[in-house]
């Protein structure tokens, strides 16, 4: 893949990847953008060795997921997002708070549950595809989806 082809691919798909990462980072768009940049740079470095053209998109999400997990492991614990909900916004139409409830619900899920839910419901991947992206078994993905749904149902009803 040439650099031009890669940039063209990124231009048409970067919004979806960033959207996925924003949800994965529970609304932290600055972090999501940094992770997206890291993801695409890593993909560019390895794209010469990538052969299976049909699964390029899934491969990008795999890199994005691994980048997110690495970032979480190296990051120091920060304040929970539920504490941010107590902060009043001066701008009542601030779009950042539109999805506050969803972000808080996602934040309470484990990383694997969150990833499984987002890849299944947001990105529309099948269970076996999610298993490949997250390097888990299909049974594990089913379990994560089931648990994720249970938690989301409970949290969004509160």
């Amino acid at each position: 893949m040439t650099r031009l082809q890669f940039i063209r691919y990124v231009e048409s798909n970067q919004r979806a990847v960033r959207r996925f990462l924003i949800a994965l980072c529970c609304g932290d768009s600055a972090l999501a953008d940094d992770l997206a940049q890291d993801t695409f740079v890593k993909a560019y470095l390895s794209c010469d060795t990538f052969r299976d053209d049909g699964k390029f998109s899934a491969w990008i999400y795999r890199i994005a997921y691994n980048t997110f997990i690495s970032n979480r492991r190296s990051k120091r614990p920060s304040e929970s997002i539920s504490e941010a909900a107590t902060i009043d916004s001066a701008d009542s139409s601030d779009k950042a708070f539109e999805y506050q409830e969803l972000y808080m619900a996602l934040d309470r899920l484990s990383e694997k549950e969150r990833s499984a839910i987002l890849l299944y419901y947001m990105q529309g991947y099948a269970i076996n595809e999610i298993a490949e992206i997250t390097e888990s078994s299909t049974d594990a993905v089913r379990q994560q989806l089931s648990r994720g749904r249970q938690h989301l149902k409970g949290l969004l009803k509160e």
């Binding site: 919004r15 959207r19 949800a23 768009s29 953008d33 779009k95 999805y99 969803l102 969004l156």
Partner: peptide, 9 residues
């Protein structure tokens, strides 16, 4: 839930 998810970027 996610169909209507369009965060600011």
């Amino acid at each position: 839930l996610f169909d209507n998810f369009n965060p600011d970027m």
